[in-house]
Amino acid sequence: MLRLITARLQQLVFVLFLLSAFTFLLMKLAPGDPVLTLLKIDQIAATQAEEAALRSQLGFDRPIHEQYASWIWGVLHLDLGDSYLAKRPVLEMLLERVPGTFQLALGGIAVMMAIAVPLGLLAAKYPGRLPDHLSRLLALIGSSVPSFWMGLLLIYAFSYKLNWLPTMGTGSFRHMILPSLTLGLAIAAVYARLLRAGLLDSLSQEYIRAARARGIAEWRVLTLHALRAALLPVVTVFGMSVGHLLAGTVVVEILFSWPGLGSLAVEAIFARDYPVIQGYVLLIGVFVVAVNLLVDLSYGWLDPRIRYEKGEAA
């Protein structure tokens, strides 16, 4: 266990280094100039001298590797630099937004599980019959409808027509419903199919026949005996696509004016606010690696065989 965590931490350092170097380079290559953007905000014609002064103040006159090195040095001291625009420490700005994105992601995952688990169970219980076809249809819709459009449809139906729920903003549980639905619906269908495949596989195992032969009730056979093994591939895919999920929150945050990391990142990209973008990428990298560590740990919980083999090897 400890060994696994240490290995993951080493991996984290490596991933973050590569990730940050890559985004740093990409942003320098991307069109747009933060200096001009900043000067334009002041609405006054800037002189060449003013421009040069700002450029050297931000360190842009130095070679790129020096800029990167000084940024990394800051990161090692938990200093992600200051936002060009807001003139505030980036770390502070990011941490403010973390709860918002967490709420949204958890809401989306909750919706996903509430849909995927029953749908997957039903589809596996009645393969080739109505629940199975229904879940296949939903999977197709869920993975082909873009989430911004899904979000707009939900707003149209529940906020505009029915007037049940707020269209945007944050603050109450009611505000969370539509964004969570938008995020969860898009991913639920895929997991339902994945769960169905896993369940069909585990339902054909000998131990399921043995459990039935002992008279264990069918719902217990499904949820307690078969589901465990079927969750392994689901959890694996979840770990791999958590980056995708966080990217998905960007669209939803913009659509619902949700104050999360994604909307902050988009604002920063428009303003060429490099330190904020860098910080955002770094933080998402930490999340992805952390979630994958949790996924690895969950294998041991899901399948004790893995836990004991690890224990013997260590």
């Binding site: 000998e206 131990y207 399921i208 459990a211 032969a213 002992r214 008279g215 399948d303």
Partner: peptide, 23 residues
């Protein structure tokens, strides 16, 4: 199904599959 377990007991060929491995 109600008979199984209480009135009819069962032992299968494959001992690997006689119990659910996760419990």
């Amino acid at each position: 199904r109600g008979l199984l377990g209480s009135q009819i007991g069962c032992v299968f060929q494959d001992y690997q599959g006689s119990f659910t491995p996760f419990r």
